[in-house]
């Protein structure tokens, strides 16, 4: 397959950035989009130029490193997958494909398609944990958890922290990301002790990082590679109000 690519190139955080057009030829339909970029980058290197920088690692949709806006969609046109899982058979031969980085105020661009998602780290550091220390915990089966509750907690815990939800949201909101962690720990008995404090601290950090608010757009759920439901945002809101009342 042959494609024309319009790729966002930006030297560094302060550079203005621009689209640059490339062509790639004889791409296998079974190749992933990132493998197509590998082919392109090897061509660019052979020409003596600086290849396109993009984050990626596991290439099986679990590490959350990759994240590209492809033809205007976070992680591309298919539902429930990360960029690295997207195969070229999803595109028509001869198409032009537009590739951009996540665009959000809280995710400044480092270079080309690589963005700084450290805001997510700081939200996690504010309270995305149970304050247990190594050792001194009860036997694992001393805490029975009803299967449906464990399953729902797992649905939330499946978040890979890629930031697609933020990139997809017109407000650049991180509510789906934050709600996934708050929801997981609010559902489980282990999370009860710090339930009130956790949601307040994580939300305060989220606001301080410059993420926008949720206006029920639901683009986050639609573009989440792990199909995390906006129901978790509803739970986050309930937890937040509960904390206000309780606190």
């Amino acid at each position: 397959m042959n494609f024309t690519l319009k790729i966002w190139r930006q030297k560094n955080r302060t550079d203005e950035g621009r689209f640059v057009e490339y062509t790639v030829k004889d791409i296998s339909p079974d190749a992933s989009l990132l493998e197509m970029l590998d082919v392109l980058n090897n061509d660019i290197v052979r020409k003596g130029e600086d290849p396109v920088a993009f984050d990626h690692d596991c290439r099986e949709g679990i590490c959350g490193s990759c994240g590209l806006v492809i033809d205007g969609r976070s992680h591309g046109p298919n539902r429930g997958i990360a960029t690295c899982e997207l195969r070229m058979r999803s595109f028509r031969d001869g198409n032009t494909i537009v590739v951009e980085p996540w665009r959000a105020k809280a995710f400044p661009i480092i270079k080309d398609l690589v963005v700084d998602r450290s805001a997510f780290e700081r939200i996690m550091q504010a309270g995305g944990y149970v304050s247990t220390k190594t050792g001194g915990v009860p036997d694992a089966n001393a805490i029975p958890i009803p299967k449906p509750v464990a399953e729902e907690a797992m649905d939330a815990a499946a978040c890979i922290g890629c930031g697609a939800c933020v990139a997809a949201c017109p407000n650049g909101s991180a509510m789906l990301f934050v709600s996934a962690k708050v929801s997981q720990l609010a559902l489980l008995p282990q999370g009860q002790v710090e339930r009130t404090e956790r949601v307040q601290r994580m939300v305060a950090r989220m606001d301080a990082e410059g993420f926008g608010n949720c206006s029920n757009n639901y683009a986050c759920e639609a573009e989440c590679p792990k199909k995390i439901s906006v129901e978790h945002i509803a739970r986050l809101n309930r937890e937040f109000i509960r904390a206000k009342v309780a606190g």
Binding site: V130, V137, A140, I145, A150, A157, Q190
Partner: peptide, 22 residues
């Protein structure tokens, strides 16, 4: 064995049976 205890205490959502046990 202690690892499993530790992870459960952290909130790792291991698979469970219908009695709620691991």
């Amino acid at each position: 064995n202690s690892i499993i205890d530790q992870c459960v205490a952290q909130g790792v959502p291991f698979a469970r049976d219908y009695a709620g046990y691991l």
